[in-house]
Computed example of a mutant assay.
Amino acid sequence: MKPKKVPGIPSQVKGGFHDTESIHKIHNNQEIDSKFDILKEKFFDINKWGDYCKQGSIEFTLCDSSGNVVHRIPQIGDYIKILLAKISNPKIEDYQWVQIDMIDKSNPDRLMIQCRPSKLPGNNFAGKTIHFYAAGSSSTFVISKGKDYIKMAIYGRNESPNKNTDFLSSIKNSFIALGGMAGSSKIQWQCLADGLIGEK
């Protein structure tokens, strides 16, 4: 299966990929705008994303460019730290860090947030990528609406293991990334997409 060619989504060059989509059909056209407005509120409230994935224990936290937790609409340059499993008193290395490098609001019917694996906030010119995928990978989150539907989608591209780290972490990243490319991360992203769209 080949990756979908979606406007605004990076081209697939190497590594794994996924196209995760959830569509909610709406037969009453008058409800589309109101339901899309609700979806937009969920979409831009990143700190609550984990609440919508009932089947998993994933946690998302929006941070500013200095790494401080913030409760606002995301901005380009912000970070999202992701905890993939419930851990008591998690340490920095227990999180996966990504940085928002694109937010597109130019089309009122289609909104996008794109992230890439990153170094720790404040470490732009030093340090190692704190994510199991390499810095060249991307995750693009997209919400849209049509004449009879609203849609939440997540597109992963160029997902390769992060080896820009110490030896043991490199091995761990390879195992996690291979599991992700084999489908485990697809399940988590589907859970999030379904939860945000309100289908499950």
Rank of each mutant, 00 (worst) to 15 (best):
S169W: 12
I187T: 14
P121D: 01
Y95W: 15
M181A: 13
D19T: 04
P121V: 00
S139D: 09
G183K: 11
K35S: 02
Y95H: 10
M181Y: 10
P7C: 11
S137W: 04
I92T: 15
G136Y: 02
V142N: 15
A177K: 03
L83Y: 14
N29V: 04
I187K: 14
V6H: 07
C63R: 08
Q12M: 03
L62A: 12
E21W: 01
P108C: 00
D19I: 00
K5G: 07
T61N: 09
K91I: 08
D19S: 07
V13N: 11
P90C: 05
H131V: 03
S185T: 01
C115N: 08
F60E: 01
F167E: 15
N124D: 14
L192I: 05
F17E: 05
F36N: 04
A182I: 00
P3D: 07
A134E: 13
L111R: 12
N29L: 04
V142M: 12
Q188Y: 09
G15H: 06
L62F: 08
M1E: 14
S174R: 09
Q96Y: 03
W49D: 07
L111H: 15
K200M: 00
G179L: 11
I26Y: 14
M112F: 00
I130D: 07
Q75F: 01
G122C: 05
R110E: 02
Y79A: 05
G16C: 10
S66R: 09
L196T: 05
E41M: 01
E21N: 11
V13S: 14
P90A: 02
P3K: 05
